[in-house]
Amino acid sequence: MVDSSSLSDASVVAQSLKDKDSFAVLILRYEAKLDRYVRRLGVANADDRHDVLQDIFIKVYRNLNAFNASLSFSSWIYRIAHNETMSWFRKRKARPEGHMADDGDEILGLISGGESSEKVHLEESDRAAISEALERLPQKYRDVLVLRFFEERTYEEIADILEMPIGTVATLVFRAKDRLRILLENVGYLYGHA
């Protein structure tokens, strides 16, 4: 395999089209990030995540020629990851579960402090409350929350990943925060409790 570690994603894509072994570089670069992202989207079981990730990378490989350099590779691969994960849920007729329970402290930070993810110490009961609130949040709101606050994506990147206008992303983020705050109150977790 050619040493591709210092190359940009776009260059590795070009190289992978000539030599499939170079594709391993992209897999190594994105495996952990996408594993975390897929988990946050609600695929809790590690074996399931492995299957989803494998499908994602195979789809990415099949569609390498569709990658347009005007888009960042990262946004492009996240888009495929998002679509494949949603497709996986549909095929399994499964609902997202257990996502972000371990990110509960960041969630609390974002609700309280706007867009900075401030770490707060949480009890086990707090995590359960937050997890429950998140599971009750509509998918479209979870999608933007995950990307904005946990994957730390810009609005433009989120627009590219979820294939929607930037204005729509901003609206969804605003509403998602609002809905989450209300849900947290409903499940018994009142802000300021921690």
Binding site: K20, A24, A44, N45, D47, H50, I58, E97
Partner: peptide, 23 residues
């Protein structure tokens, strides 16, 4: 519920994906 730690070894994904591509 298994959340963070996958049982798959580091680099295992690239091997399995490339193997699948070849197969």
């Amino acid at each position: 519920m298994d959340t963070h730690n996958t049982k798959h070894k580091e680099g295992g994904m690239s091997e399995s994906v490339l193997a699948c591509i070849v197969r």
